Simulated scan of single mutants.
Amino acid sequence: MRLSILLITIAGITLAIWLITQQGLDNVIQAILSVGWKGILAVVMTHILQIIFSGIAWRVLFHNSWSPSIPAFVHARWIREAMDNLIPMVVAIGGTFIGARLLTLRGLKSSDASASAIVDLTAEAISHIVFTLLGLGLLIHSGYHGQIVKWILIGLTVLIFSIFIFILIQKSGALLSVERFFSWITKRFSISNALKGLHNNIQGFYRNPKAILTCIYIHFIAWFLGSFEIWFILHFAGVPTSFTQAIILESLGQAIRSAGAMVPGAYGVQEGGYMILSSLFGIAPEMGLALSIVKRLRDIILGIPALIALQVLEYNKKQVKSII
């Protein structure tokens, strides 16, 4: 399994490198440099806002019950994104549950943290669909009716069906069966059962539709803020772009990245997606690559401190255990 993930990752990185060499390494570097440190700083600051809104969306699920403060959820979201973006080959969507584990260190029960992570992930996926539909609608309204529209509609159909199945699994007794299995394992080997109560807690969150809808809405705002990243990159690079075009590029670019989720980090997929979408507005392909690369630079700038923070937390936890 790990070998196949490694091979897919290498294939994705190889594709990204090939796309860059096809456009000329010097041209791509010049496109990135044209954004400048001010543009990169604007992108980083915008993404910090996205992380804050995503953390708030997660916290909203606990509207009528005790939970850690908003900063705790923002912190968990920050580290969760770092894991998913910088170590996708090892973690995959595991960053979501690492974020949930961090909340348990703040006093939240494991089952509550895990259940909220699953429901939050579902709400975020639904908001992503809405954001993609917004971008697709704006693209069609602009007069474009090419093949990209058809493929994105196919991708959206698959995504909607996948989320429907995911919600069905959560609402059915499937997770309860998993919970019972782990309960049997923990009893047999006398270890802690972190999944106990997971199914019931998920149902508890879904019994508060107002909180779910609010969570979806705030996640949508976080997705929408990503449009400013695109606009800032192109603005500082001196490429005239309307904000409507920035929304289209961000929403459909993220949709293509999600469609390439089977490739860890969407390496190559994200780069190719922004190249294709940028060409719709007459933007040079090397600038389309720059959009993707600047976003990856943003992930590194914000992600490395998050991974260091995680290691510090793990070290401190071990120190406390050794003292006890």
Rank of each mutant, 00 (worst) to 15 (best):
M45H: 05
A306Q: 00
I221C: 01
I129D: 02
P88G: 01
E179R: 03
G282K: 07
A123L: 01
H128I: 06
S183Y: 06
I40S: 07
W37N: 11
A306G: 01
G155P: 02
P240S: 09
R296D: 12
L213G: 08
I212S: 00
G253E: 04
V320K: 15
K317V: 08
Q22Y: 10
P264A: 03
L133Y: 07
A259E: 06
L153G: 13
I32M: 14
T14M: 13
A266Y: 02
I230F: 10
A117S: 11
L313P: 01
Y217P: 00
K210G: 12
H145A: 15
P68Q: 01
A194T: 13
R207D: 12
L139M: 04
L156R: 00
A92R: 13
S127M: 06
T96F: 04
L136S: 02
I93L: 09
F97P: 00
G253P: 03
I323H: 13
E314H: 14
I98S: 10
N193L: 04
G39V: 02
V119R: 00
F228R: 06
K109W: 03
I212C: 02
V158S: 15
W151N: 14
A76E: 01
I56G: 04
E250D: 11
W37D: 11
E179N: 05
A115N: 03
K210A: 09
F220G: 00
T214S: 13
I93Q: 11
G253M: 05
Y206K: 11
R207Q: 14
A290T: 08
I87Y: 10
G24L: 12
I5T: 13
I216W: 03
G204A: 03
V178W: 09
F205Y: 15
I165Q: 10
N208K: 09
T241C: 04
K295I: 03
G143D: 01
F243K: 07
Y267L: 12
G226F: 05
W66E: 06
L156Y: 00
I218E: 00
T21G: 10
L138M: 14
R188N: 09
